[in-house]
Design a binder for these strands. Structure first.
Lengths: 129, 129
DNA sequence: GCCGCTGCGCACCAAAAAGTGCGTAGCACC
DNA sequence: GGTGCTACGCACTTTTTGGTGCGCAGCGGC
């Protein structure tokens, strides 16, 4: 497995290449929420627990630079920005879904029913509203 | 996406869970080489460019603790240890292959023919021998 | 004229991941 | 009895990644 150098960044193998592009703590949560529809900055911030403004800004910037998402700014008042998946981003999502499914499997093997947890969380929200 | 806590480690989502298990710089290169046959410590070290003894030891330990590989020590002189994929490790490899294929695609889209690079490297080795 | 909302930028700090260097046990061989 | 091989362990440092806190521009409404 030879090394590859692109734009002064070094990669040890193709998997490394992918994980440097869409890995890290926040890129996948962001891509995940853009899957079905475009979202604005403030929506993403509300939807993604624990994310800081800095990390959201940085994540969106990198994903845009790598062509996974695109940004549209509306010259309104107050300003509005919408982010959406590009075709390249949609392709990446296919791989992410595979990893996620494997993750659900692993979690179950470790005794955690993640999908049940999501349902329970949704119930909580209903009660609140 | 609620948080999950397993053994005092926190995970934000299933993908995060997978990447904490088989992510990082070295786990995948190691798993990759155990794919077809068992290998010993020193073989892995020779085969994986840039890896330090510390990281190899640490990686093998974590993969074993998580059940992806198993270790067999032969009480010979000098001592010999062989590492091999468990069924769980083989399952993980399926996902890794998907990521890798996507990586090859991405690399090609970025103008890099990785498989040609591997072939060229193999040619080099032939010449040397 | 002051507050608030939106989508950022920047400086600084903490934690996690990886790299470096050195040591060790047991035996075999010369 | 010195050297070398194997499969590690440990302490320390560097690099990378993520977190905190602050500020700002432009406009609208009171």
């Amino acid at each position: 497995m030879p090394d590859v150098i692109v734009n002064k960044q070094q990669f040890y193998n193709p998997v490394d290449y992918v994980l440097k592009k869409i890995g890290g703590t926040w890129k996948i949560p962001v891509l995940w929420r853009l899957q079905k529809k475009a979202r604005r900055y403030s929506e993403l911030q509300k939807d993604i627990p624990h994310i800081s403004q800095k990390m959201l800004t940085q994540t969106l910037k990198e994903l845009e630079a790598d062509g996974f998402i695109s940004k549209q700014t509306f010259p309104e008042v107050p300003p509005r920005t919408e982010y959406s998946l590009t075709p390249k981003g949609q392709q990446a999502m296919e791989v992410i879904v595979v990893i996620r499914n494997y993750g659900l499997q692993l979690l179950q093997a470790d005794g955690i029913d993640y999908e049940a947890m999501i349902k329970a969380e949704a119930e909580q929200k209903k009660k609140q509203s």
